[in-house]
């Protein structure tokens, strides 16, 4: 249970929203309610953490539409769908769209809490990953153009001699750039360099992680 996390409740049925928010608050969650998908998008602040309990059937942008928009944003929140009745095709589509869970509105409280906890855990994981990437990307940002070119060649596993031939520079100059970029990035080995590049999203992470 995270005190910082907010559970967003998006549903057009005011009575149900009131009842569920009451229940979730009584269960210890911080709850923000939204009467429609548009209202949520307006009220949302970047960097919010938590999850969304989203009604599938709503006038205007419905649950699936909101899910698509969130998926396109840089910091999506995990989504748990709710529906009045279990509607298999909608559920399947929601799960394909990346929903964390699918609940009926009359699901057991335990089930709801489990789904919320799962969503919040995932939000934390996603948020940490995004933070690491941001830091790594910042480090690479200090490199010169030539250092980036040498780095790219290094990450492809080329020896200095071939890098020099490819870039049309002297082998000694290549060594100079390598020293410069490892110094700037604060790595001591090529293996460490590869891990950092993967975190920044420059290369696919190595299979061994």
């Amino acid at each position: 249970m995270s005190t910082a996390a907010i559970v967003h409740l998006v549903d057009d049925d005011a009575a149900f929203v009131r009842a569920l928010s009451r229940l979730l608050r009584a269960s210890g969650y911080e709850v923000v309610t939204h009467a429609s998908a548009a209202a949520f998008l307006t009220a949302r602040r970047a960097g919010d953490c938590g999850c969304i309990l989203l009604d599938l059937h709503m006038p205007g942008i419905d649950g699936l539409g909101l899910q698509r928009e969130l998926a396109a944003s840089p910091d999506p929140l995990p989504v748990v769908f709710m529906s009045g009745s279990a509607d298999v095709p909608s559920a399947v589509r929601a799960m394909h769209g990346g929903a964390d869970d699918f609940l009926t509105k009359r699901a057991d409280l335990g089930e709801i809490v489990r789904a919320i906890e799962h969503a919040l855990a995932r939000d934390r994981d996603q948020r940490a990953g995004r933070e690491r990437q941001r830091v790594a990307t910042q480090r690479f940002a200090g490199l010169t153009q030539r250092e980036r070119e040498v780095l790219a060649a290094l990450l492809r596993g080329l020896p200095n001699k071939l890098i020099a031939a490819e870039l049309g520079i002297h082998e000694r100059t290549v060594k100079l750039h390598r020293t410069g970029l490892t110094g700037k990035l604060g790595v001591r080995s090529t293996a460490e360099l590869a891990r950092l590049a993967a975190e920044a999203g420059l290369v696919e992470p190595p299979a061994t992680g």
């Binding site: 049925d13 009575a15 149900f16 009131r18 009842a19 569920l20 009451r22 229940l23 009584a26 059937h57 009045g84 009745s85 009926t104 509105k105 009359r106 409280l109």
Partner: peptide, 16 residues
């Protein structure tokens, strides 16, 4: 569907 809404709200309220 129509009945589920109030019934769900009643359930949730009762649980609360």
């Amino acid at each position: 569907h129509e009945l589920n809404q109030p019934l769900a709200a009643i359930l949730r309220n009762a649980e609360t």
